[in-house]
Design a protein around this nucleic acid. Sequence first.
RNA 1: GGCGGCGUAGCUCAGUUGGUUAGAGCAAACGGUUCAUACCCGUUAGGUCGGUGGUUCAAGUCCACUCGCCGCUACCA
Length: 638
Amino acid sequence: MPKRTYVTTPIYYVNSVPHIGTTLTTVIADICTRYRALCGDEVAFTTGTDENGTKVMEAAIQKGKTPKEHTDEISQAFRDVFAAMNIQYTDFIRTTEDRHRVAVHQFFNILRDAGHVYLGKYEGWYDVSSETFYKETDLVDGKSPDGNEVRWVEEENWFFRLSAFEEQLLAKIASDPKFLLPETRKNEVVSFIKQGLRDMCITRKNPGWGITVPGDDSRIFYVWFDALISYLASTGWPGEGWENTWPADVHWMAKEIYTRFHATLWPAMLMGAGLPLPKSIIAHGWFTFGDAKMSKSKGNIIAPLELAEEIIAKTGCDHEVAIDAVRFVLARLLPAEGDTNFTRAEVDKHYNADLANDLGNALNRSLSMAHKFAEGKIPTGSVEPAMTAAIERAKADYASAMDVLRVDKAVDAACELVRFLNKYIDDRAPWALAKSGDTSLPDVLLSMLASLRTSEQLIRPIMPTVADRIAAQLNLPAQTDFADASLPAGTELGEPKPIFPRIDPKKAQELTVMETTPTTPPPAPVAAESNFITIEDFAKVQLKVARVLEAEPIEGSDKLLKLQVVIGEERRQVVAGIKANYAPIDLVGRQVIIVYNLKPAKLRGVESQGMLLAATDADGGAILLQPDREAPEGTGVK
RNA sequence: GGCGGCGUAGCUCAGUUGGUUAGAGCAAACGGUUCAUACCCGUUAGGUCGGUGGUUCAAGUCCACUCGCCGCUACCA
């Protein structure tokens, strides 16, 4: 049995439901898999959910559920979205499954027997919520860089000798240009490794939810250590038959989990275990929204299924087509190198231009002409050389793009052929040929149909349903591989029927208004109920009106200003991170709202005795709150 | 601070190893066409290719410096 082509997405962490980013990664991986299947490969495509770790347990408790109930629920939400997006994974692995635990244990045992792990003492600051250790110097104001609480821990833990693999990793990266993609990420990894790798602490004290270390229930594995092994566990390793699937051909992911984990830790783990390395590890960038990064806290997350609903509302297309359109836009806008701005306007633009005007219309007008000028049958004749050349070029461009995992470029190549077809039609003007009785008419019509048949092939991995619709309108069987693109003469063609109705500008307008107004808040947080505070809780916060007397920058700080404020009779010093948005001179004399009873803290060595209230703009900048009219300093605020 | 990248037409971006008039898509204007989902096709952009200075017969394309932005990574206050 030939080895299967094996594609993976990361297993997704179950702390929230899937958004456009997870959908992007998964759709892209799905497209790659479908492409390889059409090339004739046996394929395996694994996605799944990462369900271990303290955070998961805490989230479950907060919801009043068991971790099992909680993870079942969220994991199902991922499967639902993936099903809706027509993702054809062949395996969905959950890190709470037995097969995964077995693989993790076996992997650890191999590393231990080979001497690649050792028991050592860990001292440091530990951020429970991200399960990460920090050095003293990493801390910001006594908290983790992300602003989470940390606590000092001294634990005996297992360490993986990551430091021992520097040279092997660099050698592998240097010798195999397709191993780490894209190039810019590879460079980052190389410089990361060259700075020196530290051994990685791969266990934690057992908080009650995770995979325990073999023979030692007091510790569980660090989530990343176990999560990576899921790629292997999915193949059946260490049982029978895993060699049919492993090594993976492509690990797809977003950039934030690339350098430290997939491009460094994971290959080193495999080297340590004596297992083959994946062929390609590739990261894409992020979608940004306007100028802001898409994030839950900004409430600007676009949910893929909502996007499909919006397309339906704007166009009246049916559900499957809308899903395919979303897949198409995701692929077309794939942030291959950097980040890509992802807006509804961008989505609409590509829907109308590429799908409705170009592809949809080309199919429609071609079929219509075949009915008018060739009795609705595939004519007998031969494809004209110009069209043959265009088809061959499109196929070649498409294949070479897919081979280096540039799905966006492959989409370009497919669009290019459609544009050529439209131009060709105008050039050859079949309606004129029909009028004059020109004998080349059948060849021209056949060329048009051949082009569409190729388009059907090329878009199939991206828009499987649409490809089927095209085949149906041509009244030909859907293509099952890239070799088959036959056009049997005499075949009765189907009736032309628009697949992509154009976006109705009026409807789009109405929906766009929604976009600018504060959009729907992010999907109800998992623990919505328990996020409420009581009026008594709120009363604990004392807010007061203050006036700025002096303001000056703090030396060596990009963000901080030191302010002297007066609150009634009292004068206080407050440090505020508003330097980017406010010049000291503009602040003097201004009234502000401060949190009066906040515990003083030192920022950059400067004592801050309160906090200014400010909103955050799209760029993360500060927008100070100010009383609507002057109020005596010291006035309470509620 | 170190490493890397980016800055090209209104917008999104292409531009091979330096070589005739710097390209595509979208938007806009004008024209054409009628098979088609008011679609499609063609023409139109006078862009000092961030800035300055070099190398060269020749630079968007190499070098230096510089401004702005970003990524990774480190670290100081």
